[in-house]
């Protein structure tokens, strides 16, 4: 009993039960849902870069430490053979499935997709994000239940939810003509966890941010963000920069470079923490085809020459679909230029 109790009594006295006619309001809603889509375009690249950073870090830099800390079982040959210095095209899928097994989840969706090019020598990494609203020709994929999906036009990110990683690879290969050597699925929660194990990431804000939508409330200046904060930072659009998606992508790119730097720093300064980071990465990252430890180690070693500040980030060029201005289609000539590095031998 508190001083609000009389008020609660009053509320109950005033309250009415929902009438059956409330169903009419439901019809208004479903009518709206049926109406032709007037969906605002929002290419959601938000975590693509951050996820790509973590995926690449986890996949490539990290395992060497794990091996050093006593794992000597990975003697088997890598399915990729000698991957150490060979150029690699990696497809990174950011999944928002919350389970560890992100692949066989009916609700798993690749919310973000990015192609990462690791050239021979690894000096410069290229990341190309694929907008999720891209309409492409989906190939026929075999679903986990054995049935085949029907080929035809569809959203690029539906390939993953329909047919899993293999279907996503097949689709991206068909759309970009880039051969995918390796796919990496990173889940959402895993990203935050990896940042946490990394001890957070430091960001510098030119002015204060107050965005209830993403739960981000920060003053101007330097801040150390935990995993949850880093996720919010990667997503926030309101009250930061010019509020545009481009601005956000820039911010994500900085975040990615910072994460990368912190991971590299930890590799030398705190190998134990780094092993935990690896573990967190291994739990939230799934590789297809699966890399064994030897394969990972070879990749990791090859990555020591990479300068994170020289990584190049971009988005696959697109234009608005002539049929539906709410959809995107690949801008072929421009895309070919962006994808050229992926096609070098």
């Amino acid at each position: 009993m508190d001083d609000l109790s009389p008020l609660r009594d009053l509320g109950r006295a005033l309250e009415h039960d929902p009438p059956p006619s409330l169903a009419r309001q439901r019809s208004r809603l479903t009518d709206a849902a049926h109406a032709p889509r007037r969906r605002r375009l929002r290419p959601r690249g938000w975590t693509a870069l951050a996820l790509a950073a973590c995926a690449v870090a986890a996949l490539l830099i990290v395992p060497s430490v794990l091996l050093r800390s006593g794992g000597h079982h990975g003697r088997a040959l890598s399915p990729l053979g000698r991957v150490d210095d060979r150029p690699l095209n990696v497809l990174v899928l950011g999944s928002d499935a919350r389970g560890a097994d992100a692949v066989h989840r009916d609700s798993a969706r690749s919310d973000t997709m990015a192609l990462v090019r690791l050239p021979a020598g690894r000096a410069r990494v290229t990341v190309v994000s694929l907008p999720r609203d891209l309409v492409v020709q989906l190939p026929a994929c075999v679903r986990p239940d054995g049935r085949k999906t029907r080929p035809g036009p569809g959203l690029i990110n539906s390939a993953y939810s329909m047919g899993g990683v293999s279907c996503a690879i097949k689709t991206v290969e068909a759309v970009t003509s880039v051969r995918v050597d390796q796919a990496v699925v990173v889940n959402f929660k895993g990203f935050a966890h990896m940042v946490d194990v990394l001890g957070g990431v430091t960001v510098t804000l030119p002015k204060s941010v107050n965005d209830p939508a993403s739960g981000l409330h920060l003053s101007a200046g330097k801040h150390k963000l935990d995993g949850k904060g880093a996720l919010a930072y990667a997503r926030v659009r309101h009250g930061m920069g010019d509020g545009s998606d481009l601005d956000r992508i820039k911010r994500q790119q900085r975040l990615m470079a910072d994460l990368y730097g912190e991971a590299l720093h930890m590799l030398t300064s705190n190998p134990i923490r780094f092993a935990q980071f690896l573990k967190a990465g291994a739990d939230s990252v799934k590789t297809v085809p699966g890399l064994d430890l030897a394969g990972m180690k070879a990749l990791a070693e090859s990555f020591k020459r990479t300068d994170p500040s020289k990584a190049h980030y971009t988005t696959l060029p697109y234009r608005f679909s002539p049929k539906d201005p709410n959809r995107l289609v690949v801008n072929e000539p421009a895309a070919a230029r962006v994808l050229a590095p992926f096609k070098q031998p």
Binding site: G99, A100, H104, R105, D106, R143, D145, T149, S158
Partner: peptide, 27 residues
């Protein structure tokens, strides 16, 4: 709101019970 009112469904979308479950088109 009301003790007998329509409580919200407090369920958490967690680990799938059957990891091998078929992938169904979310559409």
């Amino acid at each position: 709101m009301n003790p007998g009112g329509p409580g919200r469904q407090d369920t958490v979308d967690n680990e799938p019970a059957t990891p091998g479950k078929a992938v169904v088109s979310t559409m």
